[in-house]
Computed example of a mutant assay.
Amino acid sequence: MAVQTRSDVGLTMILALVVLALSLLPLTPAYGVVVDDLYRATVPVSGGSDEELAEGYRQGLARVLVKVSGDRSVVNQDEVATVLEDAGSLVDGRQLRTSGDDSRELRLQFSRSGVNRALADAGARVWGMNRPLTLAWVAVQDGGDRGLLAETGESSEQGWSALLIDEADARGIPLALPPADRAGDRRLLSEVWGQFMGQVSRASSGLEHDLLAVVRISRLGSGWQASWLYEGAGIEQSRSVTAETPQTLVEEMVDNWASDLAGRYGVSGGAIESGPRVRLQLDGVDSPGAYAAAKRALAQLNPVKSVGAVAVTPDHIVFEVEYEGELSQLRQNIALEQRFRAQDGQQADREAGEDNDFRNLQQTLYYRWQQQAVVPPSGDEGG
């Protein structure tokens, strides 16, 4: 017969109270991805003179304003044009790099508050860092050949996949393609081509996504045509566009997606006060004291603005953490707290470094709580 100790009873009671409190909170959308590079841009420059850098600042800020607002036309507004002329004042960091062929690029970090304020002054919206993940099923027919785009894992890939991924990245839309093993499924290809959303939705079971896009691309005279269904989280879009080149076609399609998403999730720039949020799953919390200590430790980290429990199970607690700055900075601060141990491949991810990695980051971090941190022995012990 199992014996329940007083400590077990106390933990059970505190967890029950937390679960009850959570059940009374209003539900909020659970986005799949934190887009960590909204306020960063990389642009080509011809040199490092003041004039050349100023032009790079203008180009970089224009790209950031489009990503943050979700509106390509925002840069044509008179108020924004004035901001672009003084783009250097919003630069928080820069790096000028030269490649092997002597071409140069300027990597820029812009002020989050400055960009949001500029959009607010222009009456434009701001679409925050927490964004839904789109799973795109795309069938392309060129002449007699028809194929299904899939994730190859090759960042240098040329063709439709690269165009779609690059344009989605430029617009701040987290995008995933189906795994490579689906590319040869002829039945699935037919369902995507026929845009049978119900069947494609079933095929998407087990693949991470918040939204589904089912796209058909084909030749139209000397140009191209794309038609799509785009659904999920209150979005329902069915449209088609034509263009002379694949690049322009993809730009037009993704522009439609970004416009609808920003229209649903974007808010007035003046209303953006909270920072990005990330979920942190913490295993090994075995007492009310450990729960309180873990929450207190998170709250005391420099980038953290707020922290609260959003889910409790016998095995772990999930916190939602609101933070300032970059996700990589939050991880680095957590690493300084010895009671948090990264789970599985997370430590390797941190050691590989994320500062130069502009990929989308998954929203949940995984750690194990160790109440007793390992303290190195002092130098005068044993001697």
Score class of each variant (00 low, 15 high):
residue 199 Q to H: 12
residue 199 Q to T: 15
residue 200 V to S: 05
residue 200 V to P: 05
residue 200 V to M: 10
residue 200 V to D: 05
residue 200 V to T: 07
residue 201 S to D: 13
residue 202 R to Q: 15
residue 202 R to G: 04
residue 202 R to H: 14
residue 203 A to L: 02
residue 203 A to C: 09
residue 204 S to L: 00
residue 204 S to N: 11
residue 205 S to V: 13
residue 206 G to F: 13
residue 206 G to S: 11
residue 206 G to A: 10
residue 207 L to Q: 13
residue 207 L to K: 04
residue 207 L to E: 07
residue 208 E to K: 15
residue 209 H to N: 11
residue 209 H to P: 05
residue 209 H to R: 02
residue 210 D to R: 10
residue 211 L to A: 07
residue 211 L to T: 12
residue 212 L to R: 01
residue 213 A to H: 03
residue 214 V to C: 02
residue 214 V to H: 04
residue 214 V to F: 03
residue 215 V to P: 02
residue 215 V to R: 06
residue 216 R to S: 07
residue 216 R to H: 09
residue 216 R to D: 01
residue 216 R to T: 05
residue 217 I to L: 10
residue 217 I to Q: 06
residue 217 I to E: 04
residue 217 I to W: 02
residue 218 S to N: 05
residue 218 S to I: 02
residue 218 S to T: 12
residue 220 L to W: 02
residue 220 L to G: 09
residue 221 G to E: 00
residue 221 G to W: 07
residue 222 S to M: 08
residue 223 G to F: 00
residue 223 G to A: 07
residue 223 G to D: 08
residue 223 G to P: 05
residue 224 W to G: 09
residue 224 W to N: 02
residue 226 A to C: 03
residue 226 A to G: 08
residue 227 S to T: 09
residue 228 W to V: 07
residue 228 W to Y: 11
residue 229 L to W: 09
residue 229 L to N: 12
residue 230 Y to V: 00
residue 230 Y to H: 11
residue 230 Y to G: 05
residue 230 Y to E: 06
residue 230 Y to A: 05
residue 230 Y to K: 01
residue 231 E to K: 07
residue 231 E to N: 05
residue 231 E to Y: 12
residue 231 E to S: 12
residue 232 G to Y: 11
residue 232 G to K: 09
residue 232 G to W: 11
residue 233 A to I: 07
residue 233 A to C: 10
residue 233 A to M: 15
residue 233 A to K: 11
residue 234 G to T: 06
residue 234 G to K: 01
residue 234 G to F: 01
residue 235 I to E: 08
residue 236 E to C: 02
residue 236 E to D: 14
residue 237 Q to R: 05
residue 237 Q to T: 07
residue 237 Q to W: 01
residue 238 S to T: 13
residue 238 S to G: 08
residue 238 S to R: 13
residue 239 R to S: 15
residue 239 R to H: 13
residue 239 R to A: 15
residue 240 S to Y: 09
residue 240 S to E: 11
residue 240 S to N: 10
residue 240 S to W: 08
residue 240 S to Q: 14
residue 240 S to I: 05
residue 241 V to R: 04
residue 241 V to T: 11
residue 241 V to G: 09
residue 242 T to R: 06
residue 242 T to I: 04
residue 242 T to L: 04
residue 243 A to E: 05
residue 243 A to R: 00
residue 244 E to S: 15
residue 244 E to F: 06
residue 244 E to C: 06
residue 244 E to A: 15
residue 244 E to Y: 02
